[in-house]
């Protein structure tokens, strides 16, 4: 198919989509409507479970089962990327070279790495109180470790990154989400039921299982993301292409 035919077909399809989408939108509740029945119920349920951050309550309490699926998607992606980016038989392993870095960049990384780690742990731990949680804090934690790559070189990052340990942590964290769910089944009668003591509203221990699940997700996201980026970085830094003459440019 030529590019022109494809474009014409797309424009025809886009016109149909645009027409039906606009028609559907015209029947939606008006933008900014005060009437949000699900919001009212979710807020009431979150306050009843003494979780200050309603979004965390929706994710890890009301819709915790969906979040289990979401977490499994992430786990599956790490597995898939590991499989896709494994070293092929005809590729050679090349040791990453030590690189020179500006002293200011090195100072910046050395100072910022521990601060970013603390911020990541803070965001994971306070997910039930303020915006944040396991997914967001996990990404911050994984980013913190990669400051070592920015501020030093790939060898420094590899020393800071115990991949075997992280792979195990990733699997254990993913499994512990299910275990918390089973604990709810045993103690409360429903999978992922919030069976832990709910604590005092607006304290770090409030929310029952919400902070526990947040911690599990935080560990899983952080270790999974580091493992994922490790495979990409290995491809870029440590593997040489099978035939250099065609791909020598990068």
């Amino acid at each position: 198919m030529t590019a022109r035919t494809r474009l014409i077909m797309f424009l025809a399809a886009a016109a149909v989509i645009a027409g039906f989408f606009a028609a559907a939108c015209s029947r939606l509740p008006p933008f900014g409507t005060p009437d949000h029945p699900y919001a009212a119920r979710a807020v009431a349920a979150a306050l009843a479970h003494r979780t200050a951050n309603t979004v965390a309550s929706v994710n890890f309490d009301i819709r915790a089962f969906d979040t289990l699926g979401e977490e499994s998607i992430l786990f599956g992606t790490v597995l898939g990327a590991t499989l896709l980016l494994r070293r092929a038989r005809d590729e050679r392993h090349r040791r990453a070279e030590a690189e020179r870095v500006m002293p200011t960049t090195r100072l910046f990384g050395t100072l910022l790495l521990p601060v970013t780690l603390v911020v990541g742990v803070y965001i994971v731990a306070h997910g039930q109180l303020s915006p944040g949680g396991g997914f967001q804090g996990g990404v911050v934690l994984a980013t913190a470790l990669h400051l070592a790559y920015v501020a030093a070189d790939y060898r420094a990052l590899k020393r800071l990154r115990p991949l075997t340990f992280l792979d195990v942590a990733d699997s254990l964290a993913a499994a512990s989400f299910t275990l918390v769910g089973l604990a709810g089944l045993v103690a409360g009668g429903a999978f992922l039921e919030n069976v832990l003591p709910l604590g005092t509203f607006n304290q770090i221990t409030s929310g029952g299982t919400v902070p526990v699940l947040n911690a599990a997700v935080g560990i899983e996201v952080a270790s999974g993301l580091i493992a994922l980026l490790a495979h990409f970085l290995d491809q870029a830094v440590e593997l040489t292409d099978p035939d250099q003459h065609e791909t020598g440019g990068d």
């Binding site: 979710a42 807020v43 979150a46 306050l47 200050a52 309603t54 929706v58």
Partner: peptide
């Protein structure tokens, strides 16, 4: 929709379900 520094019922909040 975060009540750590907001008294419930004093202000309208956006829908937390779609944010999740």
């Amino acid at each position: 929709p975060v009540y750590s520094d907001l008294t419930p019922g004093t202000r309208p909040v956006v829908d937390p379900v779609v944010q999740a």
